[in-house]
Design a protein around this nucleic acid. Structure first.
Length: 763
DNA sequence: AATCGGTCGAAAT
DNA sequence: TCGACCGATT
């Protein structure tokens, strides 16, 4: 499902790519998707309960393909249904049953094509299938994990932790969960498209400049998502416009009701909050800690007890069992592979005999197994055993050597064991199991150490200093390789650190002021209901908030977005740099916000101070590296491992304020893909514009948030060197964004921008 | 202009 | 199941 039309909306930033360009990276895979696709080829067999492994084979072929192209796969399986989704699930089951009935009828009549068509709809991917696949993955030493609940959340988590560098999935929900890098439409040749979150600002269809993850998430939820159907007539575009105007959902809903064109259900707001909290805090399995954690660290004031919909916590013992595939994620009972239950030999034979012999090609499946000297004879009879071809085996081994070297646990029985043997012999023994689980955890928690060799060579720190223009030389076709932060945390911190440079700039000033009125005039109702699930975004974010969010229309930091108690956020994190900044600066002023209109000078001073403070913070932080662990520190943003942030030589002389100019430098001082550069340039403009006229959020660095900020996460780069010559990298798409933005943001003079860079439009 | 409902073909082999 | 596409509707 996901978000209807999101892919279409983001079309302009979808980048055609190929697996080979992702070589060296670890990519998370929504395994369910592969299994499901695999069932297409054997829907009839599955519906008839004929043993087949075509769907497993399909997934394995995908795995092998990834490996072939140098990508390290990390498969993530769906687990239990979220409590809130149980209703949906029974509906689906009903539909499946109907399809099955219909399909089987067609089958009896011999209308195979139609039967196949219909039965496809009847197939459910079961934990058992997952288990079968997992057995093979174990043999191949492929990383995997079974999510306690949704694979999407799990994938997003793994990416944030730096365990994977990107996510292969068709599901646009991943972006709502905060995925940074989504790889979709992967075909059998390795062609795919890539969506980088950091490119969001370059989106042509809608301008996401200045948006936070929270804004984006709200837009998506508003337009309808798995957790909450949309208000009729509310699609992505309208959701976009509304979030853009009003920034917070309470306001949107109020305006919608006011207009009368939309029918907003009474409980919509509550449900909305639930949905958002689910996107934020759904429980996932942390392979490092061997237990369930929330996708996003809990903010102060957020209580898990109040959020049953994020999925129940599970005893670590069981959680690990589920995660490694031993236990059924729903029943928590052990999953038995059929062949291992009573003696797979007999079972296998029996099954085969039972089948309409000709149709059943399974025995022939593991053809490759005949070439595998290592195979244990018994395994040949196991229809569930799939083994890589000799060449694949070699690849796998090489691969395994490459990627497992740091595995701490003296892992695993020998590779040579067939799955059936493994299962039959040791499965019962708790000791063996615990050893296996340990090694499973060690493997599953392995941080991707991906470093692009090429990039290292070209763009080491030293290189960056001496050859600042190198970074400009990077082809857009190699942008993937610059996502090379060894750990997700670094990325996260970087983003967070930079977050403060961005605010949400509502471009429609008049509307904003308008939208703000109701709150000021009447501190409204929402304050009360806010007490329930989450203290109202509205109440706190708007009128009653003493410190943060200087701009009421700009409540959207990652933290507060769920409607958490912003006040708590502020007060509980006084030590955070960002808040310190605020506190020490003008926050002494009782006013909730400073705006450039009312007090331009103060505003500028605040901005200046803020930017400088941050710069120095970044610089100092940068002095130490390492310490990349600890989710919580990443979360709190206490010690951002920000890569060097150098002042580029090219300070724009024309930048009107020193602070701004620094900000500009900082913006440019990132290693950016062309798309990102484009977006950031636009942002720069929009920013300077805000400074010139519009009310500008002077929000301090928004403390922490789990992450956010679309244009970040890149190692630094100094300002561009003016002297490029014809590398394709210099060909930055001259987007319509520029114009598109201007429609919303009347553009002020901005002589400092070198627009020549945009004079060419590739494609 | 955008949403929404319908149909169709592809997915895999 | 998903998307791309069409046409009706608001």
């Amino acid at each position: 499902m996901g978000i209807q039309g999101l892919h279409g909306l983001l079309k302009s930033i979808q980048k055609p790519s190929h697996l080979k360009k992702l070589s060296g990276q670890t990519l998370g895979v929504d395994a369910y998707g592969w299994l499901h696709r695999g069932t297409v080829s054997c829907a009839i067999d599955l519906a008839l309960d004929k043993p087949t492994t075509k769907h497993i084979e399909f997934a394995l072929n995908r795995v092998r393909m990834l490996i072939y192209f140098g990508v390290t796969p990390y498969l993530v399986f769906d687990g239990d249904n979220l409590p809130s989704k149980s209703g949906t699930e029974s509906d689906r089951q009903k539909r499946r049953d109907e399809s099955k009935k219909l399909g089987l009828e067609l089958y009896r009549k011999g209308r195979m094509a139609e039967a196949q068509q219909e039965l496809q709809k009847a197939i459910d991917v079961t934990p058992y299938m997952a288990r079968q696949l997992i057995e093979e993955l174990k043999n191949m030493k492929i990383q995997y994990v079974v999510a306690p609940y949704e694979a999407d959340a799990q994938l997003a988590y793994l990416e944030r932790q730096g365990i994977i560098n990107g996510i292969i999935s068709e599901d646009s929900d991943l972006l709502v969960f905060g995925a940074k890098r989504l790889i979709s439409k992967l075909d059998q040749h390795g062609d795919c498209i890539e969506i980088n979150r950091s490119d969001f600002t370059a989106c042509r269809d809608i301008s996401l400049i200045g948006w936070t993850d929270a804004d984006f998430r709200r837009m998506c939820i508003l337009s309808g998502c798995d957790y909450l159907p949309s208000i009729p007539k509310m699609g992505l575009k309208t959701a976009y416009r509304n979030i853009r105007r009003y920034k917070n959902v309470e306001k949107v809903l109020r305006m919608l009701q006011f207009e009368g064109k939309y029918n907003v259900p009474a409980d919509y707001l509550d449900n909305f909050k639930q949905a958002e909290l689910t996107f934020l805090y759904q429980r996932v399995f942390c392979p490092k800690e061997g237990k369930l954690v929330t996708l996003t660290p809990l903010d102060d004031g957020v209580k898990v007890e109040e959020m049953p919909f994020i999925g129940a916590d599970i005893d670590p013992e069981i959680a690990v069992g589920v995660a490694c595939g031993d236990l059924d994620p729903m029943t928590k009972e052990p999953i038995n592979l059929k062949p291992s239950t009573a003696g797979r030999l007999t079972t296998g034979i029996t099954r085969r005999q039972t089948l309409s012999s000709t149709a059943d090609l399974k025995p022939n499946k593991p053809i490759s197994s005949f070439f595998t000297p290592k195979r244990v004879p018994l395994a040949e009879l196991d229809p569930n055993s799939l083994t890589p071809s000799p060449s694949q085996q070699r690849l796998l081994e090489r691969h395994a050597n490459n990627s497992w070297e740091t595995s701490p646990a003296p892992s695993q029985p020998s590779v040579t064991r067939s799955s059936s043997l493994r299962l039959s012999l040791p499965a019962g023994s708790p000791m063996v199991r615990s050893v296996e689980r340990e090694s499973f955890l060690a493997r599953a928690a392995r941080i991707s150490t991906f470093q692009s060799a090429k990039r290292q060579r070209l763009c080491s720190d030293a290189d960056e200093e001496s050859l600042p223009d190198l970074k400009e030389r990077r082809s857009r076709f190699f942008t993937s390789t610059d996502e090379q932060s060894p750990s997700g945390q670094k990325i996260t911190r970087t983003k967070k650190a930079r977050k403060s440079d961005f605010g949400v700039f509502s471009d429609d000033v008049a509307e904003e002021i308008m939208s703000q009125l109701p709150d000021v005039v009447a501190p409204t109702d929402s304050a009360k209901e806010s007490a329930s699930v989450a203290p109202g975004t509205n109440g706190s974010g708007d009128s009653s908030l003493p410190t943060t969010s200087p701009d009421p229309t700009n409540p959207s930091e990652a933290r507060e977005e769920t409607g958490q108690d912003t006040q708590a956020t502020v007060s509980t994190e006084p030590s955070d740099d960002s808040n310190a900044t605020q506190d020490s600066t003008q926050q002494t002023t009782p006013t909730t916000f400073v705006n450039a209109d009312s007090d331009p000078e103060l505003f500028n001073r605040v901005l200046e101070f803020h930017v400088q403070k941050q710069n120095s913070a970044l610089l100092s932080k940068h002095t130490f590296k390492g310490n990349t662990n600890s989710t919580s520190s990443a979360h709190k943003g206490v010690s951002a491992n920000k890569p060097t942030m150098r002042q580029g030589p090219g300070l724009k002389p024309s930048s009107s304020s020193p602070g701004l100019s620094r900000a500009v430098t900082q913006l440019k001082g990132q290693r950016l893909t062309p798309l990102q550069r484009l977006g950031q340039n636009a942002l720069t403009k929009s920013r300077s514009m805000d400074r010139l006229g519009a009310r500008t959020p002077v929000t301090g660095p928004r403390d922490s948030g789990y992450e956010s900020d679309f244009g970040a996460g890149r190692p630094p780069v100094t300002t561009r060197a003016p002297n490029h010559r014809g590398s394709e990298d210099l060909l930055v798409p001259n987007s319509d964004d520029e114009d598109g933005d201007s429609r919303d943001n009347p553009r002020p003079n901005q002589p400092s921008l070198d627009l020549k860079r945009f004079s060419f439009t590739p494609k």
